[in-house]
């Protein structure tokens, strides 16, 4: 993966977040405070600006994205995405490209950071209901020699389903947790936006193939 492709993931993500801004807000209105779309869209708009400005290697580019999200999004999402991407950045090489294995390792570092800081587990109705199983699939796939493109392709459908499945869960972390039983019946906005990231990854990788 090179830095152009890496940046394309984030441009795609920014576009998908913007397109889904109102939908994410409406998901958040049901079990939170109606601003997940607004906050993520504000952060991503800033993040891709820093992507345009960056002309160094992968570590520098991803660090700029991380700092943009950390200082622009706010809320739990900003803290988790921002500090998680700082770990992702530290895991990537300073060069302008990396192997698929190195990329997957950086996603692993991101997920570990989100897990450590947010202290949520699988089934708590959070973004980790998408990222934990996706991380496991990526790690296993890369270890088995599968291509990142094939994995990303598969994960588009898988992560969408995992996000949709949060509808049946009771929230145990985050602001929705205060609702208890009443959080059931609504898709978690953080899980849904996380599934969009895998769609963005797949689009970026397919763009390379095209």
């Amino acid at each position: 993966m090179d830095d152009a492709e890496f940046c394309q993931i984030w441009r795609n993500f920014a576009k998908l977040i913007e397109e889904n801004r109102e939908y994410l807000n409406s998901l958040d209105a049901a079990i939170g405070d109606a601003d997940h779309g607004t906050n993520m869209a504000r952060g991503m708009a800033k993040a891709i600006e820093s992507c345009d400005g960056a002309n160094g290697g992968l570590r520098e580019t991803s660090k700029a994205i991380a700092m943009a999200m950390l200082s622009t999004v706010g809320g739990a999402s900003g803290a988790l995405w921002g500090s998680g991407l700082l770990k992702l950045s530290a895991s990537l090489p300073e060069t302008r490209s990396c192997s698929e294995r190195e990329f997957v390792e950086s996603v692993d570092a991101f997920v570990t950071s989100v897990h450590d800081r947010g202290k949520a587990n699988l089934g708590d109705k959070t973004m980790l209901d998408v990222f934990l199983p996706a991380r496991d699939r990526l790690n296993a796939g890369v270890a088995a020699g599968e291509s990142l493109l094939m994995l990303a392709n598969e994960l588009v459908g898988e992560t969408a389903a995992w996000a949709a499945n949060t509808k049946d869960l009771i929230a145990l972390k985050g602001r929705a947790a205060y609702l208890g039983e009443r959080s059931r019946g609504h898709v978690d906005p953080g899980a849904f936006s996380s599934s969009l990231w895998f769609k963005s990854l797949n689009q970026a990788l397919e763009g390379k193939r095209a």
């Binding site: 601003d35 906050n39 200082s71």
Partner: peptide, 12 residues
């Protein structure tokens, strides 16, 4: 101060 109903960011 953060945005409306959103916690402020760490740099702030």
């Amino acid at each position: 101060a953060g945005e409306v109903f959103t916690s402020p960011t760490p740099d702030q």
